[in-house]
Design a protein around this nucleic acid. Sequence first.
DNA 1: GTGGTCTAGACCACT
DNA 2: GTGGTCTAGACCACC
Lengths: 128, 128, 128, 128
Amino acid sequence: MTMKYNASVPIYLQVVDSIREKIVTGKMSPGEKLPSGRDLALMYTINPNTAARVYQTLEQQKLLFTKRGLGSFVTEDQERVIALREEMAQELLRDFLEGLDRLGISREDAIEMIKLPAPAAKGQKDTD
Amino acid sequence: MTMKYNASVPIYLQVVDSIREKIVTGKMSPGEKLPSGRDLALMYTINPNTAARVYQTLEQQKLLFTKRGLGSFVTEDQERVIALREEMAQELLRDFLEGLDRLGISREDAIEMIKLPAPAAKGQKDTD
Amino acid sequence: MTMKYNASVPIYLQVVDSIREKIVTGKMSPGEKLPSGRDLALMYTINPNTAARVYQTLEQQKLLFTKRGLGSFVTEDQERVIALREEMAQELLRDFLEGLDRLGISREDAIEMIKLPAPAAKGQKDTD
Amino acid sequence: MTMKYNASVPIYLQVVDSIREKIVTGKMSPGEKLPSGRDLALMYTINPNTAARVYQTLEQQKLLFTKRGLGSFVTEDQERVIALREEMAQELLRDFLEGLDRLGISREDAIEMIKLPAPAAKGQKDTD
DNA sequence: GTGGTCTAGACCACT
DNA sequence: GTGGTCTAGACCACC
């Protein structure tokens, strides 16, 4: 679970995304218990405070709920999860289409690009 | 040229992107003169310091060059522009494909999504 | 007796309030036997430790007394109950009046609000 | 601006309430600049981190917005302010009425209580 | 054990 | 100067 952190985006958000992905893709099930804040801190080698912030953020997004003294749990609101997955897909698509427009690339060309084998991996974008 | 700024990404970068887009898509031609720093500040309603940083950043990316006392000009290195456009397209595509994988969406489904009419625009995420 | 718990206030206090209300409003009579700690735990679906804390708290408030081996009983000190009811009413009123002042609402307006039919219930603030 | 803090509710929330009250009652105007985080920390004798949390919370409630490097400002969304005041009034009223019901006090009696001169001030509820 | 809060101090990027 | 983030460590209440 150790991660390479991208220096330009807050660590807590990167961990949030990592966990959110697990929930949204079903790798974590509704009601499932998440690691304790302290454990999360160890797993991701971050400060306990940062770990707490991760769970706080996810709780605000209603992707998990917390019971004091017991721990944090994946939301049981399955619809929330599905809706979020849909949102994320729409945002991903919109960003892509907007980018195409800005670069003046047609959708037909874009589809061709998708069909082709993936291009070489990127050099690191911005770590420092 | 007034812009709605997204609070979560530095203003100077948003302006940088705006200008870079014009260069890459040919809306600004090689050698063309850019507005003075002060004019840029007025046009984008930003601080002159921020405007200076914009040109400084674009100069580092070799998309423009500056002549003392004369102003800033779009690079005449056409290959640089073309290469950059290609890079940007590849990055856009890669981000899209990675996002699809994370969400567990197949490329076929993605292509279907692209072909469909664009979904309604989202409410602004965080502008101010 | 099952309850929806508010995540932001300790469960044991919510149960304490629930029982105190019954005593203060006379739904439970002086000297009446309360359920055993274990039964209380079942009734409120709480941990036996928490149930014990509930009785402990109520005992500190002299609203019940415990006889070893026999169980817990509602206090027979009727004056204590009456005084508490009065206290609670005063506190309720004071909180309301202070809130009005903070919001800059006159008492006349407040009285009008009370006379009107109750507004629709709010969505739950934070239950789990 | 120094405050007496109630030990049983988080300091940052007490400061949040203090500022929210100023906004909602019009003591602070739309667009008005709030003190910097550091200044707020000094004014309320709290840690800068706690001060930051105060503004974060208020920002989530859309009562203020923040510009990096510039500071935080009272929201210019007047409707948001009005709506919030209304919400707060409704919640205050609802809590009062619910309390009356729990204590078995009629609304007529409640109105009489409101009309009477305020009862003696409360002893401290819970400081420690 | 678990989460929640707070302090203290540091570093960085942005305006 | 201003906000944003992170670390470190502590204390407390709750279950």
